[in-house]
Design a protein around this nucleic acid. Structure first.
Lengths: 263, 263
DNA sequence: TCTTCTTTGCGTACGGCGTACCCAGTGGAG
DNA sequence: CTCCACTGGGTACGCCGTACGCAAAGAAGA
């Protein structure tokens, strides 16, 4: 039945009892891999390269990690562990989601490969689980769990989308040394041709808007985030929205730190 | 300056004038690659494998495509060309976005690798551009272009998220032959351990909800989609919402008369 | 028509990848 | 002290993307 079944990396114990002491550790390997991926991209973090980074032989890594795929999983969860979030939602769901969104954006900007990494099965490492608990808990306002998931997904999708775009800009800028507006219109013959054809009015407006960056990246993110939260808020049933607002007022006035009420 | 600059695949002409007639074509290669990726995953569609599929030598492909990365771009755009959408939005933005969301889900389900494929730079092939025009055009209700993009991104993110989850379920089910509820709770020791710890109440509710699949995948998708559209609608300014509703009524009554908005 | 020259299909080869297998050495359990 | 599960890691295999070079093809210029 479950003979050759897939075993989650999170179930695999790091080290057994017997034998000589391991010279390295999962955490050490994961951190080295993240360091390389941050600097040179995920594909540069090959097993040999990581091993070299920590001064080990290539095959030694397989004593700690069953495969590279699992290592990427570890890396993925590791970077989300940097996000310093309160243990529990404060009770002010807008504030909590805003906090989480900014933390996530910061993580993606710090580790660009995360935004691009192929997300296969929904991995649930401890840190991602913590985030899920926080985000879903913030939205636990008395609406169905399906709705909670949908809204949390919307927020996640927004942050991922916007930040991926932002990263693409940054990357393009770094590679060419040009400003975004020059890149978009002046330097790209393809885009110029599309605009000249006149058949893409919406695309034209998008480009033209990017041409006059009336907002910084930060402002754009915050503006869109506000939009998304307004979306969610507006979709809540009236009684739920009012109760949530009431709870938020209490959360702000009562607790000085992170942890809200609840007992 | 732009000597070794990156040249978009969409600018590269397929064939020049001189020389012998090519034996293959970009479309043929792209279709073969998609066929393989559909059946065995994106990574199975290697250059050698694709070449074998069409009976060519491995290196012959490079006469048609500058690199595998560009070929993936072609594949990506190709599958979005299957979506049969009207040339223009109908004027009923909810209907239009619903149509687009279902078409996108169908495409992702038909080509699972698309949902997982690493999305680096925002590629703008002709078919994706057509989709952008349609989606953004449907949301062109007199709101800022930034808002249009945010809302379109929300919808896109929702469809991508939900369908990726759905695909993960399907894949897991195919590999193990078990039903989702068994998979989630009974078969996964890791999930069982997490639940037993009692420290993840929201996660527990998510799992328990999945354990009692009160909705089919289709229903779940449609329900969430309705939620998202309601979100967007609720966030629109009152006058915009009413004007849009009025336009939708006209669009329904009149058959082909579609577009009204413009500069 | 014949020559010229670009473009074709593609065989060979290189460096790099993930990782299976094997080995000698290590150190806790009995 | 003996045993043997474990360690680090060298070697090797089969893949990958693709640079390079060459003979054949066939349109352009004579």
């Amino acid at each position: 039945m479950s003979d050759t079944e897939y075993v989650s990396i999170w179930m695999r114990p790091e080290r057994p009892a017997r034998g000589p002491k391991p010279a390295y550790s999962r955490a050490q390997i994961t951190e080295a891999a993240v360091r390389i991926a941050d600097a040179e991209g995920l594909e540069a973090a090959s097993m040999r390269r990581i091993a070299a980074e920590i001064g080990a032989g290539a095959m030694s890594l397989y004593r700690y990690v069953p495969s590279r795929e699992d290592l990427v999983e570890l890396m993925y969860d590791h970077v989300f562990g940097e996000q310093a979030l309160p243990d529990r939602p404060s009770g002010d769901w807008r504030a909590d989601l805003t906090l989480m969104a900014h933390a996530m954006r910061a993580t993606l900007l710090r580790h660009p490969w995360v935004a691009v990494a192929p997300r296969g099965r929904p991995s649930i490492g401890p840190n991602q689980l913590r985030l899920t608990e926080f985000g879903a808990g913030a939205l636990d306002l008395g609406i169905p769990i399906d709705d909670i998931l949908t809204y949390a997904g919307l927020l996640h999708g927004y942050v991922a989308n916007v930040t991926r775009d932002e990263l693409a800009w940054i990357e393009e800028k770094r590679r060419s040394g040009m400003s975004p507006e020059d890149l978009m219109v002046r330097n790209s013959p393809y885009v110029r041709r599309l605009l000249a054809s006149g058949r893409y009015p919406m695309f034209q407006r998008i480009v033209m808007d990017a041409r006059q960056p009336h907002m910084s990246m930060d402002e754009r993110f915050a503006y869109g985030l506000e939009r998304v939260l307004k979306c969610i808020e507006a979709a809540l049933p009236d009684d739920v929205r009012e109760a949530a607002a009431e709870r938020a007022r209490n959360a702000v006035s009562s607790s000085g730190g992170a942890v809200g009420a609840e007992g």
